[in-house]
């Protein structure tokens, strides 16, 4: 008799896992590009917020979720361009600029949201991306629920991760990116434009981070809230390290966060659990970090010039 409820419990947790992992995964895959090229962007959190707000406001005003997503990507690219200008052209310290991006992202989205929407009498919700049930597969018991009833942005991760792997490991562009992060001068001496490669990698990174932020308003909650990203950008940074700077590594690591997040959501809804919700909310962050730190004893090679400006 106990068996059926616990399977349902597991099913609901696992079904939520992938969805919870999705925003982190987009940001982490983007950061893999950036860090492979030798630029560490700790401003992911800020960029995700900018992405989330851009997506929300454009989707809300235009009524199109796709336009919202496009707006997020453009905002992400623009953020990347600014980040790259400071860190690559001006050679400012990458950590400092990243920290500034987090502050600015928080401030600017909070300010714009309040000035644009806080006094509105109109309902501010969006009609989010709905679940797409894959024919036949979604009716498989257990697995149908866990794997085949998600919205388009969740499925999108299955496109982004292999694509990122292909670009990084099977194209001349990817080869240049990897070289530029390890030994930029070597790349320079054979005619690779180090600055261009780093700019592009940073912009790919912030575009994907913005998509991760957009997910939160277009496909998860239906509305922008100040600080909606709530630390996922920082988790994404840890996920990149734990995933050994590889897109598939980032995929599995973000699922880890997802599972803890789903778990705490479930526990919150249990009637007889008396843990303050603040503790539960902190659980996925704490658990992910502990696991990441605990499992990180293996020697991982970060790109050798990570954080070091060229020339």
């Amino acid at each position: 008799m106990e068996l059926i409820p616990s399977i349902l419990f597991l099913q609901s947790i696992l079904a939520a896992t992938w969805r919870m992992a999705t925003p982190i995964l987009y940001a982490a895959v983007g950061e893999v590009f950036s860090e492979k090229a030798g630029v560490i962007n700790i401003g992911l959190e800020g960029v995700m917020l900018i992405g989330a707000f851009s997506a929300y406001s454009v989707a809300f005003e235009s009524g199109s979720l796709w336009l919202g997503l496009l707006a997020a990507i453009l905002a992400g690219i623009l953020s990347g361009l600014i980040f790259a200008f400071f860190t690559i052209t001006i050679k400012a310290n990458q950590i400092v600029v990243g920290a500034a991006f987090n502050m600015i992202g928080m401030g600017i989205t909070g300010f714009l949201y309040r000035s644009m929407y806080s006094v509105s009498a109109v309902p501010l919700g969006l009609k989010t991306f709905q679940s797409v049930e894959i024919p036949f597969l979604s009716s498989i018991p257990f697995f149908g629920e866990v794997l085949f009833k998600h919205n388009i942005m969740v499925y999108g991760t299955l496109l982004v991760v292999p694509l990122a792997t292909f670009v990084l490991y099977k194209t001349a562009f990817g080869l240049s990116i990897r070289a530029v992060g390890e030994h930029p001068k070597a790349a320079d001496t054979v005619g690779v434009n180090v600055f261009r490669m780093r700019y592009l990698s940073v912009m790919i990174g912030t575009a994907l981070a913005a998509v991760g932020g957009a997910f939160l308003v277009l496909a998860y909650a239906d509305q922008f809230v100040e600080g909606v990203v709530s630390g996922r950008g920082f988790i994404a940074l840890a996920v990149v390290v734990f995933g050994r700077w590889k897109p598939w590594g980032a995929f599995w690591s973000s699922l880890l966060f997802g599972i803890f997040y789903a778990l705490q959501l479930r526990i919150q809804t249990m009637p007889d659990v008396n843990i303050p919700y603040q503790f539960l909310q902190a659980l996925p962050y704490l658990a992910t970090l502990l696991v990441l730190v605990g499992f990180n004893k293996r020697r991982v090679q970060a790109p050798k010039t990570l954080g070091v400006p060229y020339k």
């Binding site: 194209t171 001349a172 790349a187 690779v192």
Partner: peptide, 23 residues
């Protein structure tokens, strides 16, 4: 001027192709 984490062949062809070339 060699990238240690890449193979010999990858080092030799680095910078030789247009970015979109599939390797």
């Amino acid at each position: 001027m060699l990238v240690e984490t890449l193979s010999v062949a990858e080092n030799i062809i680095l910078g030789q192709y247009k970015p979109w070339k599939v390797l």
